[in-house]
Amino acid sequence: MSVAATVERKLRDRFAPVRLTVTDDSHRHAGHAGARPEGETHFSVTIVSAAFAGLGRVARQRLVYAALAEELAGGIHALSLTTLAPGEADSNQNV
């Protein structure tokens, strides 16, 4: 299974998201420290889940990091996160 597919499966199992996008940005970091020729090192994740309601940004990202601890300790070099509760727009997460 690809790293992206593993990430997606783990996040679905853990957070039952209403929306989830996992994007492999590795091509944008080719040749940069931490990049591997085969890619799958740099990811962006946007996840909308009721699990985040009432939590601050730090707490939300800690939950995601915990769910992906194995991947972060292994191949993933960078993970950019947008964590939203249902009803929050991407642009104003603080509201």
Partner: peptide, 20 residues
């Protein structure tokens, strides 16, 4: 308790990483 760098601290308090 944060697995990535960078990390910002203000007055001793952890604020977050790059996305935050």
């Amino acid at each position: 308790n944060w697995p990535t760098i960078p990390q910002l601290y203000v007055k001793g308090e952890f604020i977050g990483g790059c996305d935050i």
